[in-house]
Design a protein around this nucleic acid. Structure first.
Lengths: 338, 338
DNA sequence: CTGTTAGCGCTTTCAC
DNA sequence: GTGAAAGCGCTAACAG
């Protein structure tokens, strides 16, 4: 029968005394550092195994001043875009021996500030901040407090930190040029969350494509929406009923595009015959719905992995200047806007 | 992990000397604990703000022996079931002041063991372990090392920890009874990952429904699959080509059901006329594809929230014994199996 | 109300 | 090769 010992955790000191060596020797074995005779190493390792000792990263962090943790801040982990990004981040983190704090902001800037502060108190080694909804000056203030950050879908105003960016202008332009090439001239735009940098950039591409084709820009055909199905449905419904002349809709992301699909069903407009619909991201959903959604493909998992590698570069060699990674989206033509 | 260059951070001592008080006074202000004169509190708070001091949870944890962190272990965060669960966990965690380490296992038991060990070294206050793929004895060994765990989709063999469970037997039975009531007698089953407890339970329900209807059980019509679209497609394709007499398929989850939908398209079998398809979970996808998927609804976000509450109960009052929460699934009939 | 004294479990530095 | 001492930044437990 194993001994019933009070639920006190085994410490290095326990191992040391049990093995008849000093703390330092145990530490060296655990960290595989410094020269140790094979026999001592063996003996210590045996005791570690027998006692089931696990070093405390907390105690270690206090002295080394690093935690082996990073924070991942996203608006909403149940949005497939971010859950794929998170998977990419987590995959590389695991390979590199880091752990990831996942924080949802639910699109709320106050909550974003709160989690960022909490991450600071947890002394994370770095933060990947996705699609920040903070105002420029707030963002600046927050970034100033952190020693290593990588932004996703937004630039560091001070250019101190790197970013992983999608070429949204290009993506928006590609989508709208495609719609125009298929004969559409009345093209609406669901522009995404008001504070979304990506949304603003895609708007630039949208307008550029219109202008290049000599199509007048109708600001009232541009409407913000949340990046979720329900919001896409509502906003598209409203836009299409108010302006029945619209024949194509460029939607902020695949989710809002699917919402727009529903809106068309609600309104008895056929897709793509009456209204063509395009999304963005190419989340798995896009190919699965009917009609399948024309969209811009972003390699989401790779994006997450790249963001973490960029962050680790910054953490490990602080000389690394703000190096941005630009991801080029790829037009994927499907039935919703053939 | 190479060392990071230490950065000079503001400590409590800095605040104390700057404010002309002792460490303890600062500590009391920061933690809002003990009686302090308003004037001192004010003065200290001002210095804290001016210096931008942030308490170190690391140092705090070392002495309090709690970290305010929990681990969430899931097979795959990009599976919508788990990303919704994660969102529920994170929401409640935020409300309660906890931070969440997200760990994917990618269905790999070795990796599951690795992240569980890492979580232990991070000294998390508790772990939510979803859909563990460990063998019984491995699981037991791992659980023995942790002081607070909540299992999801599986029971603690030792009944030391609580679990949040879906009534999978019932769910499986409901689905299959529904199929039978619509006249199906040749019903195949994609049973999910080999080590999945849920899959095994749903199999029990599947067989029970068959037996109750006097339909002989054909073990060769039961096939494991991964909980992803591609695997559902492959396995369904194989099953349906080998046994063309099958007229209905009960699939482990919505993703594999969608894969089965594709397999039917590949094989030129119409859904639901030639083959009826049912899934499980009622992830948002299920309603979005065409035909929409008949499924069993699980309140995923609530499930995550409940799991965290159960965990916090266990952490805060260790007397609490293994209390399980059973979630009753709800049959959602849609076009894929009307 | 406020301060002093001990550590928490580990690594760093420097002896031996 | 190995060990002893000195903290990392904070809080618990007492003093005053």
């Amino acid at each position: 029968m194993p001994l019933k010992v009070p639920q006190q955790r085994i410490t290095m000191a326990d191992v040391a005394s049990e093995a008849g060596v000093s703390l330092m020797t145990v530490s060296r074995v655990v960290n595989n550092k410094g020269e140790i005779s094979d026999s001592t190493r063996q003996r210590v390792q045996t005791v570690i195994n027998r006692l089931g000792y696990r070093p405390s990263d907390i105690a270690r962090s206090l002295v080394t001043n690093r935690t082996g943790t990073i924070g991942l801040v996203v608006p909403d982990n149940s949005n497939p875009f971010f859950s794929e990004v998170a998977r990419g981040v987590e995959q590389v983190a695991f390979e590199e021996g880091y752990s990831v704090f996942l924080c949802n902001t639910e699109e709320d800037p106050q909550r974003e500030l709160a989690v960022l502060q909490s991450l600071e108190e947890k002394r994370v080694d770095g933060v990947i901040l996705c699609s920040s909804r903070l105002e420029e000056n707030e963002l600046q203030t927050v970034l100033a407090r952190h020693s290593a950050v990588v932004l996703v879908n937004r630039r560091d105003p001070e250019a101190r930190f790197g970013a992983v960016l999608i070429d949204d202008v290009r993506g928006g332009r590609m989508i709208v040029e495609h719609l125009i090439s298929r004969g559409h001239r009345e093209i609406g735009f669901l522009s995404g969350p008001a504070r979304s940098f990506s949304g603003q950039q895609r708007a630039v591409g949208y307008r550029a494509a219109l202008e290049a084709a000599g199509i007048p820009h109708r600001p009232e055909w541009e409407r913000p929406c949340l990046p979720i199905v329900e919001s896409g449905r509502e906003v598209a419904h409203d836009l299409l009923s108010r302006y029945p002349e619209i024949t194509a809709l460029f939607c902020y992301n695949d989710l809002s595009a699917i919402g727009a699909l529903h809106a068309c069903t609600d309104l008895g407009r056929r897709v793509p015959d009456d209204v063509a619909i395009a999304g963005f991201d190419d989340t798995p959903l896009a190919a699965l719905v009917t009609p399948a959604v024309t969209t811009c493909r972003i390699p989401m998992t790779e994006l997450g992995g790249q963001a973490l590698r960029l962050l680790l570069d910054h953490i490990h060699n602080c000389t690394g200047r703000c190096q941005d990674v630009i991801i080029r989206p790829q037009l994927i033509i499907r039935a919703s806007a053939p």
